[in-house]
Structures are given as C-alpha cells and as structure tokens.
Simulated assay, not measured.
Amino acid sequence: MEEVNQTTVTEFVLAGLAENPELQLPLLLIFLGVYLVTVVGNLGMIILILVSSQLHTPMYYLLSSLSLIDCCQSTVITPKMLVNFVTQKNVIPYPECIAQFYFFCVFTVAECHMLAAMAYDRYVAISNPLLYKVTMSYQVCFWMIAGVYGMGLLSATVHTVFLLKVFFCKANIIKHYFCDLSPLLELSCSSTFINEVLALSFSAFNIILPVMTILSSYIFIIVSIFHIQSTGGRSKAFSTCSSHIFAVVVFYGSLAFMYLQPSTFNSPGQGKLSSVFYTIVVPMLNPMIYSLRNKDVKVALKILLENISFYLTKNSFS
C-alpha cells in the first residue's frame, strides 16, 4: 500500500513571477521586450566582432563568448517564462525541467569564470602591454574559453546527477519562474543534504574563486595605472575597465545574494527578484555596457553600418 501512495511526480507546475492576473499582460510585454533586446544585442555583438577585423583580438573574442553565454542563458529561461504569462497553468515535464536546470547551470557557471578571464585579460593588457600578444596569444585565449565552458559543464553535470537521485512524490508546484535548484529541493520527499552541501560548495567555488581572480587582477591594474604618467593614459585605462567592473558588480551581487546563504534564509520573493537580475537583466545589459563605453566597438559598428549603407545604395542604382 505504501508503494501505491508514493507516486513519482512526472511533471511540475511553474508558479511564475506574479500570481496577480492583472500583472500578467504588462509583465509579458516587458519581458518579451527585454528578451528581444537581449537576443538582438548579444547576437549583434557576436556578428560585429566576427566581421570586423579590427576587433579580432583576445579581448573581443572573450567578449563574444560572453555574449554567446548571455544569449543562451536568456533563451534557456525566458521563453518558458513568457509562456507562463499567457497560460493558466504552466506545466513543465520532469525531463524538460531537469534539462532546463542543467543548461541554466552550465551558462551561469560559465559566465562566472568568463568574467574572471576577462579581468585577467585587462590586467595583462594594462600591466604588461608589450607582452600582451605573447601572454594572451590565440592559443591561450582558446584554452581559457575552453576552461570556462569546462567548468560550467562539470558543475552542471555533478549537480544534475545528484538531482536525479532526489525523489519527488507529493507537491509539484515550483515556487519560481524556472527550474532552479533550491525550489526543486523544497519539493523533495527524500533527503537533500548532499544536494545542499554540493550547492553551497560549488556556489562558493564558482563565485569566490572568480571574484578573487577579479579582485587580484584589479589590484594589480590599479597599481599599474598609478604608474602611468599621463592623465590621458590613466583615464583611458580606467574607462577600459569601468564597463567590466559594472557588469561584475551587478552579476556577482545578485548571484551571491541568491546562493551564498542557506536556503532557509532565502524567501521565494527574494530568490525571484535576485534571479531576475542575473538571468534576464544582466544578459540584456552586457552588450549595452560593452558597446556604449567602448570606442573600438563604436568605430567598428560605424564602419559596418557605412559598408551596409554603401552596399544597399549601390544595389539600388544598379
């Protein structure tokens, strides 16, 4: 009789961002607009870097990789969330939920380490400009990017393997807008001690290690900037790093608030608000931050638009 009562959950229901029906349409329009801006901005950045020879440097290869991560991360989360705004009951099958969590974990961890890799690249460029091409060669850049994705795949695989061992038999309503780890573990009928230890350990590693790398890089960068004699040189160095610093503060701030604390201290409302920042807002902001404050990107975009305009004008008269 006990085996009959313990029915395995085959699907979950995503509660979404807000339960108030009056908010559904405004939220749908807002996040649809945000998603479109995210996709266009990040894909545009990738295409611009690919077609502009002046941007074929390690710094911009890392930036294009960050844009790819942001675009993929947003695509894993946002479309399913948008469906929740137009359906009364947003059902997600168990396999799809696990897959969503897996890819979300891959790209979130990858972004943590990608921001650290970009900080190291800025350190080399400012502290050792004469050795930049040697230190940050294309081979080194390739292995850095491979390592970033490797860390994401490793973390996601470990989390998912142990998540598959968790038994779900009762409630199936996830108090979130996507299949995140903490809301899933709250529905478990079995022990989640190992999952919580792994979550805290991997979160600490994937947040603290990159943050320490970023802080160390910027300490050396600041020391190097103070050794620059010209005011213009200092200003250029600071402007090169300011966009990256802003992206780091927003991303890691929301991520640390979400994961570097026990689940008992993190309310569903706080978790949703924090998650919105690093899953939806940050992927939209990053292309704007790096394009609006980057002279090379502005010049490359201007040249590309002029070439497109010239090509269209030429074809219209031919």
Score class of each variant (00 low, 15 high):
Glu186Gly: 03
Thr135Glu: 13
Glu11Gln: 15
Ser239Val: 08
Leu48Met: 08
Val86Thr: 11
Leu215Cys: 10
Val158Asn: 01
Ser190Pro: 03
Cys169Lys: 08
Thr279Tyr: 05
Gln88Trp: 06
Val76Asn: 01
Ser230Ile: 10
Ala110Pro: 07
Gln6Arg: 15
Leu187His: 04
Thr57Tyr: 00
Ile174Leu: 14
Gln88Leu: 10
Asp121Gly: 01
Leu50Gly: 06
Pro183Trp: 01
Ser291Glu: 03
His56Gly: 06
Phe205Trp: 12
Pro93Cys: 05
Phe178Val: 02
Phe162His: 14
Lys175Leu: 04
Leu301Ala: 13
Gln229Phe: 13
Cys189His: 04
Leu260Thr: 09
Tyr123Thr: 02
Phe238Ser: 02
Ile225Pro: 01
Ala256Trp: 04
Ser52Lys: 07
Phe178Arg: 01
Val281Leu: 15
Asn206Pro: 07
Phe202Val: 03
Ile303Ser: 08
Lys236Glu: 11
Val166Trp: 01
Tyr177Asn: 03
Leu82Lys: 05
Met45Leu: 15
His159Val: 09
Phe162Thr: 07
Ala15Cys: 09
Phe251Pro: 02
Asn172Glu: 12
Cys71Leu: 10
Cys72Glu: 02
Leu301Ile: 04
Tyr311Ser: 13
Tyr177Asp: 01
Met136Cys: 12
Met114Arg: 06
Ala116Tyr: 01
Leu62Asp: 04
Lys89Pro: 02
Ser242Tyr: 12
Leu14Asp: 00
Val86Leu: 11
Glu3Pro: 04
Lys236Leu: 10
Lys80Gln: 10
Thr213Pro: 02
Leu131Glu: 15
Leu17Gln: 05
Val13Leu: 12
Thr57Cys: 04
